[in-house]
Structures are given as C-alpha cells and as structure tokens.
C-alpha cells in the first residue's frame, strides 16, 4: 500500500472541529471524557450549544485559569469547569433522565471500534485489568444523535471501522455518524455510507484501511478543515 496516513490524516483537533460544525444552534450536547471534550472549543460563531455533564451540570463553559479552580465544580472527567449564564445543577438520577430519556440532541464519544450496524466498542480492551464503564453505556441509548470521533485506524494500523466489533460492546446499533481522521461516514441501514473524505486519499486507498465496505449514496463531499 502506497498510502502513508501520517502524511495526510487529520489531527484530533481537526476531527473535533469537523464534528463541531454539525452541532446546531440550541443543541443540548454531551461530550465524552478526553478527546471529545475538544469539540466544545470549535463551536461555530453565532451558534449556542448547551453542554451537559453526567455529574449534574447543564451549561458549563471553559476551564478556569490555574489557581481559580473550585473542586465542587468539575466535569465528568473530574476537570475543573466554569459556568455559562443560564447554567443549572441537578442530581445524578435527573442527569441520567436527561441522558436516557432522549433529551440530549447529540452525544459525541470516542471509540475502539465501530461496526457497520452501529455497534460501538469503547469501554473495554477485553484484556483484563480493571473494568470501568462510567456513563458511556447510558449515553449511547438516549441521545437523539450518537456520533463518534476517532482516528481512522489504530496506532498499529488496524481498521477501527469494522464489519463486527471484536471488543466488548458499549451499545448495540447506536452510532449514527463517525468522524475519522480521513472521512465522515454515516451508519444507515446496517452499512457505512461515505459522506466526505479528504481529497488526498483515494476511494480505493480509503477502502483499504477500512474493515467494512464503504457504500456511496450520492456524491461524496470533500472533507475540508482549517489548519489548527
């Protein structure tokens, strides 16, 4: 294979930027711990999303300056946060009523593997150690849209978009869109449908690093992101 992904693939910030462009004005959004938290930084001008965190805050803002942390005011990743005007606090059962009850517009999570039927594996590498699930299994059932942001392949080069997940599942048939370092794919009707791809990667090369067939349904747009 002639393709060297490292030369062309998007950075995490660029993947997060692309995902942020699909968040509508007024949306209620939950961002997973770690890489997905970055999406909040790239909200398009003029659009206001309200961010939810599992531990009981709606409407949190950016991180406080070092030294200004209040450790009663943290996000699900246990990082200090600040509040935007109009924020609200609530207890954990109410927080997951928001999640499970279909009140969130979008949840954005990371992934180890996504299958063409929308199955997601993102909580356990299946290798033993200490299992830890947090709120991921709740988030994938309930948000109106469950999007994944991820590198297209693992660090060892294995595809993360697959026919069927090998790792323990987080949820069955739950993912609706995947933003990778090479393309944007929708999960629909039990198959991956390619919506956008980087101009620098050919369809053939993209398929060669994908573990399931990439279908086309109309034009494939060009995935264009700014330098970040």
């Amino acid at each position: 294979m002639s393709l060297d992904l490292n030369d062309i693939q998007l950075s995490n910030a660029q993947i997060a930027w692309r995902a942020a462009q699909d968040i509508a004005d007024g949306a209620y959004v939950n961002l997973g711990i770690g890489f997905p938290e970055m999406v909040a930084k790239f909200q398009p001008e003029g659009r206001e999303a309200v961010f939810h965190t599992e531990n009981g805050v709606l409407g949190f803002g950016r991180a406080p300056d070092a030294g200004d942390e209040d450790w009663d005011l943290i996000n699900a990743g246990k990082k200090a946060i600040t509040l935007n005007p109009g924020a609200a606090f609530f207890h954990h059962a109410d927080s997951f009523a928001m999640v499970r009850g279909g009140h969130l517009d979008v949840a954005i999570l990371g992934a180890y593997e996504v299958a063409q039927n929308g199955d997601l594996a993102n909580w356990s590498t299946g290798r033993g150690g200490v299992p830890a699930v947090g709120g991921a299994m709740d988030l994938v059932h309930g948000a109106k849209r469950v999007a994944v942001i991820t590198d297209h392949v693992t660090k060892k080069g294995a595809p993360k978009l697959v026919e069927a997940c090998n790792l323990p599942l987080t949820g069955v048939g739950c993912v609706t869109r995947v933003y990778t370092s090479l393309c944007v794919v929708d999960v629909t009707g039990g198959r991956f449908v390619l919506r956008e791809k980087l101009a620098a990667v050919s369809l053939e090369d993209l398929q060669s690093v994908t573990g399931a067939e990439l279908h086309r349904d109309g034009d494939v747009g060009e995935l264009v992101v700014p330098e970040l």
Partner: peptide, 17 residues
Amino acid sequence: LAGGIELEIVPQGTLAE
C-alpha cells in the same frame, strides 16, 4: 488485581437509577 476486593461494575446512569 490481587483478588482482595470484589467489584460490581454498573453503568453510571443505571447505578443512579
């Protein structure tokens, strides 16, 4: 990992509910 404590993992929202 030494087998000295039992662990029941529960999804966070399921635990709250």
